[in-house]
C-alpha cells in the first residue's frame, strides 16, 4: 500500500512544568516514526522538551453546530470566576 501514512497531531511541551500544546501535525507510518518526524519537524529551533503524538483519527472534536448547546450554558455562571466575589475592605492574601 502506497500512501503518505497516517496524520498524527503533535503536542509539544516547551519547558518542564508547562502543558503540552498543539503545534500541528505530521504524516508517519507508526508511532515511532511519528515521534521522530515530529521531533525533526517541530523542534529544530529548541522548541521542546517533550513530544506527544496522537493519531488524528483518534481525536474526537465537538462540532460547530453544537456551539450553542456546548458552550453557551457556561455564559451565565459567572459565580465560577474569582472576580465575582466582593471581599471585605482590607482583607489580604485572598
Amino acid at each position: 500500500m502506497d500512501n503518505q501514512g497516517d496524520v498524527w497531531e503533535v503536542f509539544i511541551q516547551s519547558k518542564p512544568g508547562l502543558a503540552h500544546k498543539h503545534v500541528g501535525n505530521i504524516h508517519a507510518m507508526g508511532k515511532e516514526m511519528a515521534l521522530q518526524n515530529a521531533r525533526d519537524m517541530y523542534t529544530r529551533r529548541q522548541e521542546g522538551t517533550c513530544i506527544w503524538v496522537v493519531k488524528m483519527e483518534d481525536v474526537t472534536s465537538s462540532v460547530p453546530e453544537e456551539d450553542g448547546s456546548f458552550f453557551e450554558p457556561a455564559n451565565d455562571k459567572i459565580y465560577r470566576q474569582a472576580t465575582h466575589y466582593v471581599m471585605p475592605e482590607g482583607s489580604k492574601n485572598i
Binding site: 502506497d2 500512501n3 501514512g5 507510518m29 507508526g30 516514526m33
Partner: peptide, 8 residues
C-alpha cells in the same frame, strides 16, 4: 513507503 506501511 509500502514497507513502512506494512511494518506499521
Amino acid at each position: 513507503r509500502e514497507a513502512a506501511n506494512a511494518y506499521a
